[in-house]
Design a protein around this nucleic acid. Structure first.
Lengths: 135, 135
DNA sequence: GATTACCCTACCAAACAAGTAGGGTAGAAT
DNA sequence: ATTCTACCCTACTTGTTTGGTAGGGTAATC
């Protein structure tokens, strides 16, 4: 399951998408409108900025805004930044791969199944973008 | 990500599949061969039994064994018993549904995306069975 | 009736999640 | 230049989950 933090991230991004190219949006505006604890949200947006999904402007009239067109940011990217691995097993993760001990990947049925699941997940999560958040 | 517990469960089941209809298998045998902490494994097998995936026989010559043909037990079932929800959001889970507050499911882009992901996951996890664990 | 092997409860430490607190600092605007 | 705004950063707290341990109870074979 996605963490609450990640769900907050999506709710915040939703708002930034709908105000794309209309100037920076205040953290406090997002927090109030989306009912997210202010300081917790700060932390989330910072993470998204560090990854390059968001940009920010300081001082009066500042705030956060999308670094690129919503349709250029896959949902998968957001999940990886805030939540971590998408795959169901470390040994089939593309970005967070870890070898599983006591299991020969060449002869592991579970491994094969989870490769399939991962591909099915990514087929959607890499194609859908922030633009799809707003319906 | 699946918990270590769930991965243990699959490793244990793998062994029970390969010895299907060859009599009960000792917990201690599974623990030793699959390198799973004995008492922890006990707990896992008990859970699987309670759900009806396994049966057991007490006393000398006892042990655990599959309650039905491996090909009749979907991988999804094991995950739900040991790990819980498969879906990425509570509001799209079939077996563990929970309404998400502050989000109208009728007009939530993320909701729609995650419905798609869930279906893609289940298409595989409901079709693949314990029989597929052993290659 | 002794032994075997499952069954059950409780406990523990570490890690993570979710949220709080408080101040630091850069940058606009006046 | 100063002031105010709003982002930036670190640390802490609290509660839950995870992974694992301990120890004994109980039912069923032989």
């Amino acid at each position: 399951m996605l963490s609450k933090k990640t769900q907050y991230a999506f709710r915040a991004l939703e708002m930034l998408v709908s105000r794309y190219e209309q100037g920076p949006v205040l953290i406090s505006d997002i927090a109030r409108k989306k009912k997210i604890p202010l300081k917790f949200l700060e932390n989330i947006l910072l993470q998204l900025k560090k990854d390059g999904i968001l940009e920010s402007k300081k001082g009066k009239g500042g705030g956060y805004f999308l670094a690129q067109k919503p349709s250029r940011v896959p949902v998968a990217r957001v999940i990886r930044v805030v939540d971590g691995p998408i795959a169901m097993l470390p040994c089939v993760s593309l970005y967070f791969y870890q070898k599983c001990k006591n299991c020969d990947e060449k002869h592991c049925g579970l491994h094969d199944i989870m490769i399939g699941v991962r591909d099915a997940q990514l087929a959607i999560l890499e194609k859908k973008t922030l633009a799809d958040l707003v319906v």
